[in-house]
């Protein structure tokens, strides 16, 4: 898949975190980046736009990232969702992986890691 055709959803309650991640993804050549500011919005965005990759924060208002992860996987069990959070504790990691997250990024986010995920998705169709 060409990176130009990739659709990515960035879900984080912080406008600054969203901007940083969005800037990084756009700099890689992906023009189609959607945003959601809480877990409920993430599920709604996923449902109507079907992005190829979702980057999902965990600590968020309304629905947290783990609940949103479950909600999206109910809609589409094949969704590729990468958790991107500051709380990479044993139990949050376990919850995320158990619920079906594809991978986990510890904040502060390393742009090289983001590139690795996106490159690998574009070449293999998965992270």
């Amino acid at each position: 898949m060409d990176i130009k055709d990739l659709k990515v959803l960035v879900c984080d309650d912080s406008i600054l975190s969203r901007k940083k991640l969005k800037d990084c993804i756009i700099s890689l050549g992906c023009a189609n980046v959607l945003e959601a500011a809480d877990g409920e919005e993430a599920i709604a965005q996923y449902d109507s736009n079907r992005p190829n990759i979702v980057f999902m924060d965990i600590v968020m208002p309304k629905k947290d990232g783990i609940e949103a992860l479950k909600g999206i996987l109910e809609i589409d069990p094949k969704a590729t969702i990468i958790m991107a959070s500051s709380v990479g504790t044993q139990s949050y990691l376990k919850d995320a992986i158990k619920a079906g997250a594809s991978d986990f990024l510890q904040k502060p986010i390393d742009n090289k890691q983001v590139k690795k995920f996106i490159d690998s998705f574009c070449s293999k169709g998965g992270v």
Partner: peptide, 24 residues
């Protein structure tokens, strides 16, 4: 503060085996 507290909970989880959560 979210980044700091997040890294704090990670350290505490890894070193003290105490699992903490954060609110937004």
């Amino acid at each position: 503060i979210n980044l700091h507290n997040g890294l704090f909970t990670v350290n505490v989880s890894n070193e003290e085996q105490i699992e903490l959560q954060l609110t937004p």
